[in-house]
Every structure is written in C-alpha cells, then in structure tokens.
Nucleic acid binder design. Structure first.
Length: 764
DNA sequence: CGCTCATAAT
C-alpha cells in the first residue's frame, strides 16, 4: 500500500459551507431538469414536463449517429448510462457535451464524473476532473465517492488532501465518503483525523456522521471508540442503535450487544429488520435459543419475518443451537433462498461437525454439509468465499482429501482462491489430511499471508515432525514482521520438543514471555514437559512442572505418566497417577492410560480401583471408533467389529501381517480391552485375536484401495502404543503410507517410522 | 440539488 499523507487539520480556518445550493449553477431551469427525472411526474404533483420527454434510448441513438440533442437531455441520458453501466455511451455523451460547451456547467461535469465512476472507469473520471475549468465541492465529492466505490480508497484520501489544500470546504457528504475510504483502508488513524475535521466543522453531532464514526471505529477493531462515538450522538436513530449492536457482535462483545438491544427497546426505539438480524446473530454467538425465540417473535411483531435476511438469521439460529430439524424445515419452507442461506446451512453443519462429542454425529454433520454444498452447486448459484472456506473446513474434519482436491480446483476456476480465508482454509485442509507438500505449495502460492496462515503452516510442519522447517518458518515470519501469538508458540515449542531441541525450546519459551509479553498457558507447559519426557529427563520434567504458577492439569499429568511408563520409571509413574486420580479426571483417555499402566504392571487392585472411579464419576463406556473414506463412501469400524462382509478377509490379513511383523521384531504390548458392551455382543464366539478399530479400518483400506495409494484413517480416541507400533510394521510390510489422525495428533506412518517421532508420550 | 453518505444475516 502506498504511504498515505497525514491529514493536517491545522492551517486556514475552515468553515463548513452549509448552504451548498449557493455553489450550484442554475443555467438549466429547475423545472426542465425535473421533467427528466426517472420517476414519471405524478398527475397531482404539478410537475408537468415543459419539454416533451424523449425516450433516452432514442436520444442516445441520435447521439451515436452524430445528431445533436438538446442539452437538457443530458441529465436523463447520463442517468440511463448509469443504469446500463455503459462506458462507450458515456463517452459518446461526453463528446457531445464538449461540442456544445455544456461541460463548463459544474453540475453537468459533476454528473459526468459520477457516470464514469459508476461505469467502473475511475481513470476517465479523473482525466475529465483534471481538465475541468469549473469544479465545486460536489465535483470533488463525486470523485472521492467514486474512488471509494471503485476500491481505490488511497486515491480518495489523496484527493481529499488536495481538496483541503485548494481551500475548498468539505461537506458532510465529503467527510462521509472520506470516512468510507478510511474504513476500506482499516485505518483508524486516518479515521480519527477525519473525525477531527468533523468536530472542527461542527457536524460531529449530526446523526449520520456519528453513525459513520461508530461504524468506522468498529470496523477498525476498536469497540471502545465505537461505543464512545455512539454515546456522543445526541439524537440516536434506529441506524445508530443497529450500528452499535452489530459492532458489539463483530467485536465479540455479545453481552454488551444484548444489553444495548434491551436499552434500545426500553427507550422505545423501534427495531427494524437490520436491528433484529443483528440481535439474532448475537443470540447465535451465545447459542441462546430462548432469547433468540423472543427476538423471533419481535420479528413477527414488527412485520419483518418474511424478509429473506431475517429468515436466514432465524434458520441459522436454530441450526447453531442444535435444532437441526427445525432449521431444516425452515429451510425447506423458504421459496426463495440466497447464497447466504446456502452458506448458513453449510457453516452450521460444519460447526456442528467440530463441536460434536460423538464421532458418528460429527461425521453425519460433515456429510450433511457436503450434501448441501452439492445442492448449492446444482442450484445454479455460484459458491463464494464463505461457501468454500466452510466446506474446506469440513474436508479437513473428515480427512476427505478427494473432495478437498475437487474443491481446490473449483476455487481456482472461480477465482476465490485469491481470498485469504479460502487459501488459509486450503492450507489447513492439506495439513489436516496429512499432505504436507500440497499444504506447502498452497502456502507458497498465497498472494498475502496473515498470522493465521503462517501459524497454520507452522503447526502443519510441527505436526508432521518437520521441526527444522517449522522453526525456519517461524524466523521467516518474524522477519516479515508478523507478530506471533500464543498459538504460534505452541507450534514452535512442539516442534522443538519433537526434535529434542531443548536449548531452542527454552530460548523460544523465554522469547515468548519477554519479547512478546505472552503469558505461557497450559499448552506451552505441556510442550516443554513433553520435551523433557521424550528425552527421558523425567526429573527435569517434574522440576519444570513445579515452576508453573498453576496446578498441573489432566494433560500435564498424563504426559508425565505416559513418559514414566515409556522410560520404565514405574515408581514415579505410580506417584504421578495418585496425584492425577485426586483430580478426578474427566477424559476417558486419561482413564485408559491409567488402566494400561496398571495392566502392564499387573497391579490388578489398582485396575479395579480405576474402574470403580470411572463408574463413580460417570465416565461413559469406552467407545473406540475409526473410519475410512474410499471414493464417496465412508466405512465405520468398532473394536473387534465383525459386522462387515469382508471381516474374515480383514482379520486374516491382520493375522498374517502381525505374524510377519513378529519376525521383524514386533512385540505386542498388553493393553486395555476397548470393546464396549454393544461390541462384545457382536463379537461373541469370535477368535481370540482382538483388534482396535484403526487396525480394522487400515485392513479394509489395504484390501479395497489401489496398491500404493495412501491410507487415511480417522480415529475418535488416541491410538494405543500397541496399535501405533504395529502400524509402523504394516507400513514396511505393505510399502504403504498410512495416515491415522487420532484425537491428539496426526500419525504419518512410512517405512516403519511415524511422523509423531516414534514416541509414546501422546499415546495410550 | 448535480455527490444520495450511515445499519443486517453466512
């Protein structure tokens, strides 16, 4: 972006020329002009045309032939140009205007500037403007407004500076347009300066100006300034209220937003459809269905429930609050839908996928999102950046790489890949699907990179065990001047941990605290503890935990216990387990870890103690689920599942693989039986061999997928170390790349190694 | 009065 000038407010004392009419030439009689207005004169309005209105099309045809028309026709002709957005027509008219010398009349040339701008030709407008003998504040304003319209806010600002320098007085129209330019530039500094001009000209208290300021500050991310601007508006109208309420939503202060909505009602300001949709969106954010329903009834009361945006909001409210059937029937009842309707459906299902506790539910939601996306494509409407970013999130969640690739192609074709959110979602999708090279490619090809895209890529490298690249990326990011956040540092520290770079980890940990003033949270400590544990430095790990200024949580203890188990320090493990049990952990995986530890040590009393605690704490039964997607079908597996027709083949394959693996040195770990009751019924009379769900899914993939293709499996809980170890052998024996994404991380098995660093601290 | 400026849903 070109550097922008400062808008010095000092200098010649300006006074707002309140009466713009003085500047307006009246060479064409008012009544003549009126007769060419778009709306036909009404019978009772007394606006009889003094010149017989000539059809604008006919007039334009005459001009094209070179025949002149009366100069009074220029206004409707230009009006017609705006409607058709036809640049050539504008040029024809322009030529005639010059021929007749009419361009010296300021209002005609102002119209021409406006027409060029509305035809998307700012260059033509500017060229004309620069040669004008006469220009007034309206002409200047038309140019500024036009630049904003054509997404050239820098030029709008530069023209405003020239306007001020030329001694012209800006009007409220002018300052409103300049404020829009500041908004487009997200420049709160420029905005404040324009605010200064408004104060100076005494128009700050005008409602529309206050509203604009309120909106500007909100869009620039300062809710505080926005609220201040709002409070200073003496005569707040419904727009003022709507602006501040939606500002609260945009800036994440739902509580204040809802309070202000209540204030508005108690001050007897009647909300309109804009206000109500904003309020509904606040209810969505806090998932408050009962409040949402009240606002729904307001919509009916104020008669705007039939408006599409309102319908969209209400549908989205039900969807976000989990009332899928209600949302669905509202959707089906809609006779007209907009792209936003489709997008709301996709985004709603995508969110449900992410929040679903149950993996079956998650998958179902994701699948619904795909169905909606498909229907959108067939409806004749074109997906936009919102559709693409939502559906790419769904692909990430389901590891649906085939669909993801198709959508990638569609984003290129439609041009939406240039959008920062879409391209970030694409990087994320490839990372989550285990395609680090495609992610890198997508990242490199981005036109601009934000904190989110850098962090996403960095985390991708880190999760794939490519620590050097992750850290290199971090340094590049700092070099470009992007300020890392908390999440970025989680990526950096986990990369260090992965590669055993203890000194670097400590260096970055301190950098985070001292240079960036970011307070370390549990995740950061978890990375550090994980690192010491990986190194077998259990004492250092425990010492680090003692340094924390909060109590270790379930995650920290789990890492310590898993580490003790891996490094055979059973006593320390038992000690840590006692501390963990005092916390009454919530996560089912924590219990499996503890059970596994006690089972390996054959401490059966502790095993039954943990099982009892699980019952007391109402920890549900252990459900082990995996799924694999082949073509457009998804196949689910449970532990020891024998439901599938190919079961016999799958079990035989697993047996033979395990046998071969044993020859290569595979030793099974004893681990907890993961079948739940439902599964046990199904596996009555089954062979002795037990398999967790991911092994079944992998076997299914090996049988049904073309040789050499990558196998991608999603698992709902963390892999156990026995499965992890055996899959490493499978990758050698079958010469396949196998990707398992479990609830904690991504495992990419290749040639007997796993990208997680072959270390079990994050395994059960 | 030729710039028609300010608010919403994904």
């Amino acid at each position: 972006m070109a550097s922008l000038p400062s808008l010095a407010i000092s200098g010649t004392p300006h006074k707002l020329d309140a009466d713009v009419r003085k500047l307006s030439p009246a060479s064409v009689p008012l009544e003549k002009r009126l007769s060419y207005q778009r709306s036909p004169p009404t019978a009772d309005g007394g606006r009889e045309a003094s010149v017989q209105p000539l059809d604008a099309r006919e007039a334009l045809a005459l001009l094209r032939e070179g025949t002149g028309v009366e100069s009074a026709f220029y206004v409707p002709l230009l009006q017609q140009c705006i409607e058709t957005r036809s640049l050539p027509d504008a040029q024809v008219i322009h030529a005639h205007i010059i021929k007749t010398g009419t361009h010296e009349e300021a209002f005609i040339s102002t119209s021409l500037v406006d027409v060029y701008m509305k035809c998307g030709a700012p260059h033509h407008a500017r060229k004309l403007f620069d040669t004008l003998p006469q220009r007034n504040v309206v002409t200047w304003t038309a140019l500024i407004t036009g630049y904003v319209r054509n997404s050239e806010p820098e030029n709008a600002i530069l023209i405003f500076v020239r306007l001020v320098e030329s001694g012209c007085y800006p009007t409220n129209y002018t300052l409103g347009a300049v404020l829009s330019a500041c908004c487009a530039l997200y420049s709160i500094e420029l905005g404040r300066q324009v605010h200064g001009y408004m104060v100076k000209y005494g128009i700050e208290s005008e409602t529309s100006m206050g509203n604009s300021l309120c909106s500007l500050y909100s869009k620039c991310g300062s809710l505080e300034s926005s609220v201040k601007a709002f409070r200073r508006i003496p005569n707040k109208n419904v727009i003022s209220w709507t602006t501040i309420i939606s500002a609260c939503g945009d800036n994440g202060d739902t509580e204040l937003g809802l309070t202000l909505f209540a204030d508005m009602l108690s001050e007897d300001v009647e909300p309109n459809e804009y206000t109500l949709t904003s309020a509904l969106s606040l209810c969505c954010m806090v998932q408050d269905l009962s409040l949402g329903k009240q606002i729904h009834s307001f919509c009916i009361k104020f008669g705007c429930e039939s408006q599409l945006p309102v319908k969209n909001s209400i549908m989205y409210l039900y969807l976000k609050c989990g009332e899928i059937d209600e949302a669905r029937s509202l959707f089906d009842e809609m006779d007209t839908v907009s792209l936003i309707t489709w997008n709301a459906m996709i985004a709603g299902h995508a969110q449900m996928m992410n929040l679903a506790k149950d993996d079956m539910a998650a998958h179902h939601s994701g699948f619904e999102a795909f169905k909606v996306f498909q229907k959108l494509n067939r409806s004749g409407m074109k997906p936009d950046l919102y559709s693409f970013s939502s559906i790419l999130t769904v692909c990430s969640g389901l590891l649906a790489i085939e669909q993801g690739e198709q959508i990638h192609a569609q984003t290129i074709k439609s041009g939406y890949l240039s959008d920062i959110v879409v391209s970030s979602a694409l990087v994320n999708m490839y990372n989550k699907c285990g395609c680090i090279d495609d992610a890198t490619k997508a990242f490199v090809e981005m036109s601009t990179r934000t904190l989110i895209s850098w962090t996403s890529m960095l985390t991708g490298y880190s999760q794939h065990g490519r620590s050097k690249e992750a850290i290199q990326l971090f340094e590049d990011m700092r070099l470009v001047g992007i300020r890392p956040n908390q999440i970025t540092f989680v990526g950096v520290l986990s990369a260090c941990s992965h590669a055993g770079m203890v000194d670097e980890a400590e260096y970055y940990f301190n950098m985070m605290k001292n240079e960036y003033g970011i307070k370390p949270v549990m995740d950061h400590y978890a990375c550090m503890v994980d690192m010491f544990v990986r190194q077998g430095r259990l004492e250092d790990a425990f010492a680090f935990v003692k340094k924390m200024d909060f109590e270790p949580n379930e995650i920290i203890w789990s890492i310590l216990i898993a580490g003790c188990r891996s490094h055979g320090n059973v006593d320390l493990g038992f000690h840590a387990a006692e501390r963990l049990l005092e916390l009454k952990p919530k996560g089912i995986e924590t219990y499996i870890l503890l059970l596994n530890m006690y089972i390996s040590a054959e401490r059966w009393q502790d095993v039954s103690r943990v099982r009892k605690l699980m019952k007391d704490e109402n920890i549900g039964s252990i459900r082990d689920r995996s799924w694999i997607s082949i073509k457009d079908k998804v196949y689910f597996f449970r532990a020891n599942d024998r439901c599938h027709p190919q079961s016999a083949e799958m079990y035989a394959l697993l047996e033979s693989l395990l046998q071969k693996a044993t020859c290569l040195g595979y030793v099974p770990y004893k681990s907890v039986e993961l079948s739940d009751k439902e599964d046990e019924e199904n596996s009555v009379g089954s062979a002795a061999a037990t398999h967790h769900s991911e092994r079944l899914a992998i076997a299914f993939g090996l049988i049904n997928m073309t040789e050499g293709t990558t196998i991608r499996v999603v698992k709902n809980i963390t892999m156990c170390r026995d499965c992890h170890n055996s899959v490493k052998f499978f990758s050698i024996l079958t010469k396949r790349e196998i990707i398992v994404r479990d609830s904690k991380r991504l495992h990419r098995f290749r040639d007997g190694r796993c990208s997680c660093g072959d270390f079990g601290a994050l395994l059960l």
